[in-house]
Design a protein around this nucleic acid. Structure first.
Lengths: 219, 219
DNA sequence: CCTGTACTGTGACTAATGTCACCGTTGCCA
DNA sequence: TGGCAACGGTGACATTAGTCACAGTACAGG
């Protein structure tokens, strides 16, 4: 399970870099009043039904957020990156509600936890905090809308292209080490279909397939 | 086009009913500092590319919010009802961004417009305002996620059922006066498909079809 | 009463996607 | 080194959804 990190020296330097929009006094309070937890690869920060007590944002690592339906099918929606907060964690802590998504660390991730009380308190004392909260919501709302667009308006072929491009962006690389099965899981479809459509992309000269890897040519 | 309503006496009584969670001082400021606009049936409150100067919420009427893609296809997402604000209008005014959705009044609607400056100012002066803003985001995020669920996890047949149930809820009635074409537009599909699936629902005893109307039996 | 228009029904066809069965390859490790 | 597990390829088939063509019905307005 995730471990609490007591030593906040590393945190201190990260914070100054990532949250330069926040007032210095707020940053100081943030460092003092929050707790930091380290999640290992594969550990969950939230899951459906999870009762949230704290809002969080991450300073290190990468988190994948999934939407699930009742039958266990899941759909990847977006990443949370260092410097970003989880809008749904703010939403849930505000009214003591349970999570409706799953958030999984895809690499070692440090998350700062802030209690509901501080969240509200800072809203009235720091202008930059209000902006940060609203920006967080705005950004995630747009991301969910983009995810909506994909399933509502585009076919699987386009969605796979979109997915590959995003992976390239996130990993800063044109060669993705990912299996067809993983792609199928993230897009809530089957491996066979992914294989077929990837082959089409290869025939169109957009990618080159290797075992356990996909080289993306055309961004 | 929409008309500004200068006489705020009607507004006054509506506000006290709808926004009982807001502090009295805030309500007073809200009435003083905002402008009220009346939109007739079919008029648009926002549309893609629209540069938003004010956040708004509505005190009377009903607004339908659509997501569109580049080819003009559109997809109904949710309603804004009296007492509710538009999360996307808050998001856009915060950073002076353009709208990415279309919002249409489906009946005569009164909307209160609040400038970006007041929005931020009140955040620091009224606790209830912060709650209201966050609640607005939380509610809409959930609604968009529900819309996402529908297209991501359910077939058209289930989505039509969901759609009919929602219409019943909104209109407080079990007999919907709506054409197949309208349903098809809202769900981004074609009339023929809607007709076929409605017939299936009728055969399953869930609805009774009349000309220009659908009677929903099973909620 | 005639006519145009909106609404609805239906069959035939196509495209996209999901599912099943089965096979070959690769690489790990007991 | 033999076998197992994960990965990837492929054909056959079913289902779902979109498209086209056309026909019938109700209704409003001239």
């Amino acid at each position: 399970m995730a471990k609490e990190i007591k030593d906040k020296t590393e945190l201190h330097s990260h914070m100054r870099q990532l949250f330069h929009d926040l007032e210095p006094f707020l940053l100081a309070e943030l460092e003092k009043e929050s707790t930091v937890w380290r999640f290992l690869e594969g550990e969950q920060l939230m899951h459906p039904g999870h009762y949230l007590r704290n809002m969080f944002f991450i300073t290190k690592g990468l988190v994948k957020v999934y939407r699930e339906d009742n039958d266990g099918a899941e759909f990847f929606m977006y990443y949370i990156k260092p410097g970003q907060a989880c809008a749904l964690s703010i939403a849930c802590t505000e009214r003591n509600e349970i999570s409706t998504v799953r958030a999984v660390a895809v690499e070692e991730t440090d998350a700062i936890m802030v209690s509901h009380n501080h969240m509200e308190d800072w809203l009235m004392r720091y202008k930059s905090w209000g902006r940060f909260v609203i920006d967080t919501f705005r950004y995630r709302l747009e991301e969910v809308l983009l995810a909506f667009d994909n399933v509502a308006f585009r076919g699987l072929d386009e969605r796979i292209e979109f997915y590959l491009k995003r992976q390239c962006r996130e990993t800063q690389s044109k060669t993705l080490t990912i299996s067809h099965q993983e792609i199928a899981n993230d897009l809530n479809t089957s491996r066979e279909v992914v294989s077929r459509l990837l082959k089409k992309l290869e025939q169109h000269g957009k990618i080159i397939m290797q075992r356990h890897a996909i080289e993306v040519l055309e961004l």
